[in-house]
Amino acid sequence: MAKTKSLPKEVQALVAEKSSILSKALAFAELDMSATARPLWAAAGFKEEMLAPLMETLGRDDEAAVHRMSAASCFMRIGDWSRAANLFRAALGGPITSKSRQEVHRLLKECLAALAKSPITTTSNVASTFSASQN
């Protein structure tokens, strides 16, 4: 199995922190605790968004695209359709597989359709609820 180059310590820490938050969001969502999961989705989305350009600075463009898709999927979960749409659009500019490209196009279409129907939501309020609960 091909090895990956190890990430700088700061990036490793951010990946670990993001995985911890995202795995909590996934678990609470699976357990039908959507209100508990909501601020976690937002916080995980912001971390994924931060990770994407960091991966690009390391020449890991494919991983950058995956972090953007993941960020977008987190924001979709809380109905921040415009942020999700921007991130999906940005991910399409990266080197992603044809199957992922198809899936991203489908999700982007879904976001735009939802955006056309719903009022604009801001994620920053949701994420600050999470930050406040961590302090």
Binding site: M1, A2, K3, T4, S6, L7, Q12, V15, A16, K18, S19, L22, S23, L26, E48, V66, H67, M69, S70, S73, C74, M76, S100, E103, V104, R106, L107
Partner: peptide, 21 residues
Amino acid sequence: GPLDVTVLGEKADYRCLQSKQ
């Protein structure tokens, strides 16, 4: 080794951080 988790749509993906898997 350590795993990372990402999501695409409704699906979660676990991936290794030490090997391409």
